[in-house]
Design a protein around this nucleic acid. Sequence first.
DNA 1: CTGAAAGCGCTTACAG
DNA 2: CTGAAAGCGCTTACAG
Lengths: 337, 337
Amino acid sequence: MSVPTNPRAVTRADVARYAGVSTSVVSYVVHDGPRPVAAETAARVREAIRVLGYRPNASAQALRTGSSKMLGLIVPELDNPFWSELAVAVTHAAAARGYDVLIANSDGDAQQERERLRTLSARQVDGIIVTSIMTHPDLSSTTDPGIPMVLLNTFFEVPEYASIGVDALRGAREGTQHLIDHGYREIGLVMGHTGSMELREQGWMQALRAAGLPDGPIVRCSFDRAGGYEAGLRMFDGGAGPRAVFVSSDLQAVGLLRALYELGLRAPDDVAVVSFDGVAEADYTNPQLTVVRQPVEAMAAAAVDRVLAREDPDAHHLDLVPAELVLGASCGCDVRR
Amino acid sequence: MSVPTNPRAVTRADVARYAGVSTSVVSYVVHDGPRPVAAETAARVREAIRVLGYRPNASAQALRTGSSKMLGLIVPELDNPFWSELAVAVTHAAAARGYDVLIANSDGDAQQERERLRTLSARQVDGIIVTSIMTHPDLSSTTDPGIPMVLLNTFFEVPEYASIGVDALRGAREGTQHLIDHGYREIGLVMGHTGSMELREQGWMQALRAAGLPDGPIVRCSFDRAGGYEAGLRMFDGGAGPRAVFVSSDLQAVGLLRALYELGLRAPDDVAVVSFDGVAEADYTNPQLTVVRQPVEAMAAAAVDRVLAREDPDAHHLDLVPAELVLGASCGCDVRR
DNA sequence: CTGAAAGCGCTTACAG
DNA sequence: CTGAAAGCGCTTACAG
């Protein structure tokens, strides 16, 4: 009946001893089942749990039940705002369903991605949400086939996996259309290098052609601030360049704004800008970016729901979530949000 | 001798059967010990592991050995760039030592922080690195006393815990001194609300007084972009305000730059700015921010080393890591980095 | 060099 | 309503 003073963690055996019951009863009380427990006994057990500070050992539970109540999440770079915002959204969606999230960073490297997949699998996560840098991630042979997996931020069907992504084609079309609505006739494109983003390029092009406008200039660059900066210098140096640009990510737009700043050009007066993503950073650029916002929370919730739905009626399913145009000042609107 | 086709995960028993050895030998081969194994037997086991795709069940290992090879990391907001950059640094430092990191988000809430601490503890992490929003985090009663814990981003001694933080006092002094060196005589302070940051305020003040300058105006605000924006409006609206400002975080400086932009003021021509932290975002503001950079990698490595050093010779230890002044253009230097 | 056995902490079907 | 027992997959001291 005394509180143990050794540093070893408290186990249900300690609780059982303290409460004067069997270890089974401790479990019944902790889980409120599957066997009934007399009210008075339960109260004694709860008191023991409180006094001793008992928490069930998650490893033992995972081993016994086969479920770790953890979800794995693979992101390319956790220090990229889009991924960190998505990771937070996944964490919240998972928490709402009683799951912790084990976040693994692949550092944008395909080999590390595979390795992280393996360690998540070894850690017995109940499901894995993968946001891959690869257009067609090679996932098949790397994980326990018993672990459900969904692809998040994927814009096309991947055989054997459910995938969830924003409707990038339509989002890009609407973002470009907004620039057209402002009256700009020449609209360039700053586009990141990657097959999976082609839909943004197609959306931009569709909008232009539907309006009977010529294709604007395209500059391709890496998917970060530095890339956008270089693209901006290439597109606008020497006074050339289009009157407006659609940019494939907010971070690239941030780099583009730097290039314009250095070139002595002003947005939106000299160059109007609309970009894709809608991260928090885009709210505080000067001018504030008009963005095609990815509905990060909805995407995360859909991914968690999907990976937890063990039945998996249609593995080929592609779930396209609509993006939303959020007006700022960079397009010429001068809305304040 | 056939590959199992059921979806159940492969266990060492499957490997043993396939290789025609006992399960002990499988362990000996996997861990290269503690008993020797004949070269030919080992080769057969390795082949079986490869063919079957075996990976040891981490839950079972954790239960058996008492070590999960996971470190817990608590951050207030993972979608704040400073915390996400720190989280990545911790992940890298931990990976270099064979540890995965379980990242837990407290959403800046003290109660959630305690709850996350408990779940990390229940998950049998081998150590916890806490970056608390609280000046004096109440950690004592919430975790298994057997789990080592260090405080990261803490600038003062906390009884019973090792803590690691940047030398904020000196960093702030040097950042302010740099503005003084530029010749500014009136230097304001934009300061976040929190006791633990007072050192930045003291550093700013020390620099001013050492130079025989009067204290500049102080505006206090929340520790984010919105806070910096409001502080900027308050400090500079109506044409008033100091010629230079030291800002307690990059994000607040981003908000301040927005306020200046809206007020038609230019940095550094009208107002020079130096801020604290050195996140990636600060590289791409217009103008580029001059920052007192926190050595995130060094801090993360120190925290991981400390939490993994089980001996713990001096729990009261406070490890202060020096910050580094990184020049940009917002102070008036016009260095490009 | 190899294998049988105990035990980490837990859950749950089974017996009472 | 309560408890004794099996077993999840692993590691490792012990015996051979």
